[in-house]
Amino acid sequence: MSRLAILGLAARVRRQEILRGVDLEVGSGEVHALMGPNGSGKSTLAHVLAGRPGYEVTAGSVTVDGVDLLELPTWRRAQAGLLLTHQYPVEVPGVRLVDLLEAALAARELPAGALDRLGERVAAEAERLGMPAELLARGVNVEFSGGEQKRAETLQLAVLAPAFAVLDEIDSGLDVDALRTVGARIGALVAETGLGVLAITHYARLLSVLRPDRVHVLLAGRVVRSGGPELADEVERIGYERLAAELGVELAVPPPPPERDPFADPGF
């Protein structure tokens, strides 16, 4: 039984404060949905948790079973048990999924034989996720469709088997069938391996295939409401704008001012 604890997390991107004190706790085998409109800070939270360069934490803590993740570089956070599935997975030409997974597993202290038959395991997982086998011969994400990208993200999650997954809009770009496949696979990981999930999403539709235990609403960098699955239905019904109005809070963090062009005419 593990515990992911996010306490009072505040963060800036390009000197603009985006997260303003986020509190969330996820236990093993739990599915938490984090919903919010564009600009509420959802993806920022995902990247702050993964330790993306350029994201500056100004307050708060993130721990997995007491281990302070914010002190660790990105790769150590993944090893400590927190894995991010990317909203926009980048193409890495010439590096196949199996190469990536082999490197990721080899970097961990795993028992001997942990890499045995990795190719077969990856192929079996691809089949389960409905990924054409020819995608495994390509560089990861290279010319993958949106649905193929998210299936590939799910495949990596299944093989790397972390304690916690942060799903950054894994439902975006998915058609109904792909959504069902991906949701079912993640649901199985939760049930079978005790994976804890923080599913960041814009819409409630993911939650029809991946039933959440708890739903949180993020507005303007804060969790403004938490509740059971019924909260997702309420959000879907009334919308973020009305919810913000009812709670008397801002809807979204204002967009950052444009970066000053150092080569611009100084005007004097």
């Binding site: 360069p53 997975p89 890495v92 030409p93 590096v95 490197a103 990721a104």
Partner: peptide
């Protein structure tokens, strides 16, 4: 960043990207 977010150390991530760059 993508590779590091999978738990791959920076030097290995760079090695993979460089080898991948030549792969075609």
């Amino acid at each position: 960043y993508y590779l590091e977010s999978r738990g791959i150390p920076p030097a290995e991530a760079e090695r993979l990207v460089v080898l991948g760059f030549f792969e075609d």
